[in-house]
Nucleic acid binder design. Structure first.
Lengths: 195, 195
DNA sequence: TTTTAACTTGACACAGTGTAAGATTTTAAG
DNA sequence: CTTAAAATCTTACACTGTGTCAAGTTAAAA
């Protein structure tokens, strides 16, 4: 059995993430990854055939570390639509601080990595699926606003929960996270739920 | 007088924009710009000392073509806070279709162009200044929600007006623009204004 | 018509990606 | 402990794109 290969791969992915999440948005050259992992550039290529593939693997690896299911449990366990909406909103905003730096790093990287971005978007789509579930719960409780279809309500909810808005308020303008959460709870309920 | 230089510069900027706004998000190499403009790569460097500078110039040039002042006139002319909010929201959403492709292109480009991005963000900041003005008008009418400071209300309004949300609903999910506008009007009023 | 600015031509140095092949170390199994 | 295979290292190369340079050519304003 070749345990070493797995270990090195793991080390490389951890290294990529640590560089990606580092405060100075480095260009992330292959040589940087190699050096930081204490390995040769060619070894990196032995594990990932090019940068895109490496980034995709790193994104997936990152997702694995996030124990999404656990954090979403309260939302799934909510007894009714309104509380499910509340719980899901809270869960999402709790993800943002961890996720946002990675998003920034990916955005700062060349458009050559189209596939890496689509791997990222897969993760985001999963987030939206949660929005849809919350909206469904509202609908089946009969508390979803009448003029909103489920699809529209999902889009709208997803739009309101945007990470850039969170970053703008919390990171750039110093809102306490609790305040931002409170506003989002207020606004999402107003936007979606019957009074 | 050397009129030719100005003309060439103008041609180059138009070319950059047309490539940037083209459906296929090309990598925008200097040689692409040169060829598309019918000019040598060296000529491009004679006008802009590097790619960042070229992109910045293109962004500013783009802004100039947008006759922002005219489009914002209705908002400035609004007789009261509520109608100013409505007018500004409409004006912003009318900008989005023109602006969004450029934003996408810039985002798809390497982090090497840090300065280009900050030129972009200057434009965005101007947008936010408009949000602040609308919020001030609400405040002075006494219809701004009591729990919101002007700063907080501005951040919140700006957050709700995010372009990615617009793109998500209108471009990706086929909302008619009028529907999106209507929802935004509804939500922003609920979020900011006393009932 | 001249002169000069603008543009062209053809070269170069540099950085980063991705490939290749042989030498060396490490690992796991006998 | 030995050995064969796997993983890594070393060195080298081809390729693309950026940015620079210097001399030659075209076109515009005087």
């Amino acid at each position: 059995m070749s345990n070493k290969r797995e270990k090195t791969r793991h080390l490389l992915l951890d290294t990529v993430l640590s560089l990606l999440l580092a405060p100075e948005g480095s260009p992330l050259r292959m040589i940087d990854v190699a050096k930081a992992a204490g390995v040769t550039r060619q070894t990196v290529y032995a594990h990932f055939s090019n940068r895109s593939e490496m980034l995709i693997a790193a994104i997936l690896h990152f997702g694995d570390q996030l124990d999404i299911d656990d954090r979403l449990a309260p939302s799934r366990a909510a007894p009714d639509g309104r509380s499910r909406l509340t719980a899901y909103t809270r869960a999402m905003l709790e993800f943002f601080p961890a996720i946002y730096p990675l998003k920034q790093s990916l955005m700062r990287m060349g458009g050559s990595d189209e596939e890496a971005k689509s791997a990222w978007e897969d993760r985001i789509r999963a987030m939206k699926e949660g929005c849809a579930a919350a909206v469904r719960a509202l609908k089946s409780d009969g508390v979803l606003l009448d003029h909103l279809s489920e699809a529209r309500a999902t889009d709208l909810y997803f739009t309101l929960l945007n990470m850039d808005g969170w970053a703008h308020c919390v990171l750039e303008n110093g809102w306490p996270e609790a305040d931002y959460l409170a506003e989002m709870q207020r606004v999402t309920h107003l936007a979606l739920v019957k009074p």
